[in-house]
């Protein structure tokens, strides 16, 4: 009863989503270490810590679980929703809704594709499924990142994907709270603002790194 219900599915998706949102902040924090001019020492140390710390080791499968849960319920809810209107309107809907809120599934797919690429670039190399490129050690995330971002096209697509992620997050945060039943006449507007602020921080933060690398020559780092 609990799991088969439309609300329960949404709630699990929201919980997983919020968990992922927290993870994104941690991820951003580590990534921003790339910007320090220490030749990647701080970043590598953090990556090292993340790779070896037992707590993080345990958290890793949980994180994957979170992704899978979020994606699974996203697909399920989306499928049910499509089935709920077998004959579509001739005139597309022009109701006033918040920007891109109708396209959570679409932005989600783009983020998912990006995630797949991202995993291939980093995680699968780390775990040894894919051989690292010539001249880069298996655990050398720093050099790996520098190499990827030295490609302008890669950086461009990276930023684009982060932007889509930003749109996804902008609606996601307040949406998750709504789904969890937290809607309050006084706090919800503030929460919406905080959600948007979070989305902007994530988008700008992650985009900063390729931009920084593109415009500041490596030699100066």
């Amino acid at each position: 009863m609990l799991l088969s219900s439309s609300i329960a599915g949404k709630v699990l998706m929201a919980l997983a989503g919020l968990f992922l949102a927290v993870f994104l902040l941690v991820h951003l924090g580590i990534n921003l270490l790339l910007l320090s001019s220490d030749g990647g020492r701080a970043f590598t140390a953090a990556a090292e810590f993340m790779a070896t710390n037992p707590v993080i080791k345990i958290a890793e499968p949980v994180l994957f679980g979170g992704f899978l849960l979020h994606i699974f319920f996203g697909m399920m809810v989306s499928g049910q929703n499509r089935a709920a209107r077998p004959v579509r309107y001739q005139e597309s809907n022009s109701s006033e809704t918040s920007f891109l809120s109708k396209y959570m599934f679409h932005t989600g797919i783009i983020v998912f594709l990006f995630l797949a690429m991202h995993l291939a670039d980093f995680y699968l190399i780390k775990t040894g499924f894919i051989a690292p490129p010539e001249g880069i050690a298996q655990h050398d995330f720093y050099s790996r990142a520098m190499l990827l971002f030295s490609n302008r096209w890669y950086s461009f697509f990276y930023i684009l994907s982060i932007l889509v992620l930003g749109f996804h997050l902008n609606h996601a945060i307040q949406s998750a709270f709504q789904t969890l039943g937290l809607n309050h006449s006084r706090y919800t507007p503030a929460l919406k603002l905080a959600g948007s602020a979070y989305a902007i921080v994530i988008t700008v933060g992650f985009s900063l790194i390729p931009l920084w690398i593109a415009f500041i020559p490596l030699t100066r780092l």
Partner: peptide, 8 residues
């Protein structure tokens, strides 16, 4: 269907 919080 389920709710995706578009608020339409």
């Amino acid at each position: 269907g389920g709710c995706s919080n578009t608020y339409a």
